[in-house]
Design a protein around this nucleic acid. Structure first.
Lengths: 342, 342
DNA sequence: AAACTAAATGTCGACGTCGACATAGCTGAT
DNA sequence: ATCAGCTATGTCGACGTCGACATTTAGTTT
């Protein structure tokens, strides 16, 4: 492997001068620069970052720790956001996954420490409260799509499920819906309660009562092996004589099943029943016909901005912005419309 | 940062002895090991892999280059497979993405070279022919879910779309279907043609003629911004008087739209029409009711086995198994049944 | 022309680790 | 008592880079 010394020899200068050229230091004569550049190209020299790292004790690498990658394909966007940021910064990204195993997580932290990472993004694939298992290893860390167990122990960034759900509820109210069904997410998910509470609260503020909201539990059980009642419950809900004119679902996967239930009952979306989702998981929301009204989760930006926050923490532990929250925007599409005039 | 020398001092031995303990070398007395171990724990020493890397010129890191991560969420499983393997090997994974930009890809290769990666997995998110833009950088490389442009230039591993599609066609024939619809994938995808050809061929071998197979194009246009005709075409196909008793779709996302089309026409799956997909993208295939008969793509194993092959290439450029192919298994579920006895 | 300044380049060593080699201590055979 | 043959441990230097500092060269001032 060609080193700085080989280049130096080829260019007839000292290794330090090559280093200066590579790092764009001032006070190098133009023709020296020229000579060195050409030698570098000729030999195909590429600086050894490991060596740099050991001299400067900064690796230029940030790590990503994820938990359950498989179960939620969309939140891969978080990783994409982080990568895009890293790319723009000329940093590199080391990826590790724990599958939710604390023992495995401790190993990951050790590995990260061994690589002398500059910082770590601890990414949760579904939003939840998190207590990083970092042992006594201290690397600047930011939680993404999660919040720290002990408030203030970590910086973090989360989506504003609450606000998004309010926007969704307002959308249905504005369309004129007064009897509304709601299919709840697995209560284990942090977003589940916020989405539901925001929804219920908004409807109540608009004067709707207990009886106007038909709430059903769509999923239950441990993550990755939950039981799914969405189809059954939606079918039941829409078969009732006083069926709601709109059904809001905890996420888009549930909305898909609600579509199927509605269609099998011979109901048309949105003429007979409005269906809305949450997440804007585009593989589903755009594949559904009519396309699905939903709320977009800013996964990419969670990653990007999480990385930005991390950068700040690395530069110097600033105390500001400990817990950032990102807006979830309503995405109105064709699956929502005014209630059928019965 | 605590180094091997700090540990040596604390334990009252030489740094080399600490190194021996850390690397489990023989011929160290048990109580020396004990002393050193305790010092390591006390100080929280973790070996610096960068330093190790510069001495041994092997980093223990493998890189993943992906192209379009966003468009195909399921193939994130490939990355999971690679990670799982790396974890088992005590290696680490560096992740980079090109978004299909050749310029960006060259940068990635430079970065990988700068980190002195042991090997690279060049992962395509949809199966295709690939020519890595690695400039004059030579790191052991394996193509995953892709095949090299110049045969033999790289080792590679791909799914056997052809075999999977044959199995699917046979499944429909065995159920008794004799009029079959087929919704084709975007012809840009390598899998598209193989799937279609295998399907057509299998039906022909069984004696079905041109007229028994209704083929429609479901998608067209550049990846990520293709036009989607699936819903329209399926609706047309199923509205025809001599409608097929089964519809096979190029992938599960298309199958989802075929479901919607069928249901909106008042057809029941599978009593009135059988619908099958391809990919076993479980977010869809399991959410559909009835659950979708499909063909599972071995994404996880593509990653894992691709990594294994890479390991072999790193160890010594073995010439065997240049181009491995992995079986795609039929996953029979409830969406396929015998044709309706009209 | 002497004296000084600024720019250009070089020398050296340290970062953390471990291979090559050297040395010290012990056992047992002669 | 001597020496071979172990095992246990230590010393040294090199990997590739770059900061601290030293030296040389060119340019400016008086």
């Amino acid at each position: 492997m060609v080193s700085i010394k080989d280049v130096a020899k080829a260019a007839g200068v000292s290794d330090k001068t090559v280093s200066r050229v590579v790092n764009r230091e001032p006070n190098v004569s133009t023709d020296t620069v020229e000579k060195v550049r050409s030698a570098i190209d000729r030999l195909g020299y590429i600086p050894n970052l490991a060596a740099r790292s050991i001299r400067s004790s900064r690796s230029g690498i940030v790590g990503i720790i994820t938990d359950y990658v498989s179960t939620t394909p969309y939140s891969g966007d978080i990783v994409r956001g982080i990568q895009a940021w890293a790319e723009a910064q000329g940093r590199t990204v080391l990826l590790a996954s724990t599958n939710g195993d604390p023992h495995r997580e401790r190993e990951v932290w050790r590995t990260f420490q061994a690589h002398r990472l500059d910082g770590v993004l601890h990414v949760a694939m579904y939003r939840r409260v998190v207590e990083p298992e970092n042992g006594d290893i201290h690397i600047p860390t930011v939680l993404v799509n999660a919040r720290p167990k002990r408030a203030g122990s970590f910086h973090s960034i989360e989506p504003d499920d609450f606000g998004g759900s309010r926007a969704l509820a307002r959308h249905l109210l504005e369309l004129g819906h007064r009897r509304i069904g709601y299919i709840r997410l697995n209560p284990l998910l942090l977003g589940a309660n916020e989405r539901y509470e925001a929804f219920r609260e908004t409807l109540q503020e608009a004067g709707l009562g207990q009886a106007d909201l038909d709430v059903r539990l769509g999923m239950e059980g441990p993550i990755g092996e939950e039981e799914n009642f969405v189809f059954r419950e939606t079918t039941a809900m829409l078969s009732a004589p006083d069926r709601p004119s709109a059904v809001a679902c905890g996420n888009d996967e549930m909305a898909l099943q609600a579509y199927l239930a509605a269609l099998q009952l011979g109901l048309r979306v949105p003429q007979d029943v409005t269906i809305v989702g949450f997440d804007d998981f585009r593989t589903i929301s755009l594949a559904l016909k009519p396309e699905l009204t939903t709320v977009a989760l800013p996964y990419f930006d969670l990653g990007w901005q999480g990385a930005e926050i991390l950068d700040g923490v690395i530069a110097g532990p600033a105390e500001s912005g400990r817990n950032r929250s990102l807006e979830c925007r309503l995405v109105p599409r064709a699956s929502s419309g005014p209630p059928h005039q019965a």
